[in-house]
């Protein structure tokens, strides 16, 4: 459930920002925003957990009636924001790797900038952009602290984003905080759950890796 929200934020915002930075922004703007994005990538995830629980949730409770203190909506939004710097910077790199001769070919036909961006640059960087989103998604899925803090640890199967529910990673944290004794069922179960998580993210990563390599071969 939070996964849909993540993509709902990261895809449009990430794509538009990457296009703007790679095609429209002046060099001075790009040279400022790119390092800023790299810095933002370095913000520890527990800080994003703080944002989710203590900043975003109280703020949204003013607008969304019935939003609980612990919910799925806010972690979804915060995770989307969290992976944005990564997604933008990787997909912008992919767009800039599209040879300039292709852009000139477009301009020589009388295209406007947005036409060059949407008809030449995006198709040219497509696998690189997709890889950026898949790898970003994989980060969000594997992310623990935001969810452990703000989504709660209640094993609640719900489609209502205003409520809380446990996720794989939050479950592991909850179990670990309780000081799991060696060899108990709880101990075994966090390993089973961890393995599942590993498999899910591995699948994402392998697809992302393959796409990125394919993109590199194209130019």
């Amino acid at each position: 459930m939070p996964d849909n929200l993540i993509m709902f934020i990261a895809v449009p915002f990430g794509l538009i920002m990457a296009i703007y930075l790679s095609e429209y922004a002046r060099p001075a703007v790009r040279e400022t925003v790119k390092p800023a994005l790299e810095m933002l990538e370095a913000v520890p995830t527990v800080v994003y957990g703080f944002f989710a629980l203590l900043v975003m949730t109280p703020f949204l409770q003013n607008f969304i009636p019935g939003l609980k203190g612990i919910n799925l909506l806010v972690p979804g939004i915060i995770l989307g924001i969290m992976i944005l710097p990564y997604v933008v910077s990787v997909s912008e790199d992919a767009m800039r790797a599209v040879p300039n001769s292709l852009r000139e070919g477009g301009y020589a036909l009388g295209m406007a900038k947005w036409q060059v961006a949407t008809r030449i640059v995006i198709p040219g960087a497509f696998s690189g952009i997709t890889a950026a989103f898949i790898l970003g998604m994989s980060r969000a899925v594997g992310e623990t602290m935001v969810l452990a803090v703000a989504a709660g640890q209640n094993p609640n199967l719900t489609w209502d984003p205003r409520e809380g529910a446990a996720t794989i990673t939050a479950y592991i944290v909850q179990m670990s905080l309780g000081d799991v004794a060696y060899g108990t069922t709880a101990y075994e179960s966090i390993f089973a759950v961890g393995l599942l998580l590993f498999v899910i993210t591995l699948a994402f990563n392998v697809i992302g890796f393959y796409l990125r390599r394919k993109f590199r071969e194209a130019y």
Binding site: E104, G105, G106, L109, M111, Q115, G124
Partner: peptide, 29 residues
Amino acid sequence: RLRVGMVFQKPNPFPKTIYENVAAGLRVR
């Protein structure tokens, strides 16, 4: 640029189909 076309040093087809490459200039118009 609509009136004066150009072909470059290195072939620079767009990352599209053959048909769409040729049609690109027409669609711009």
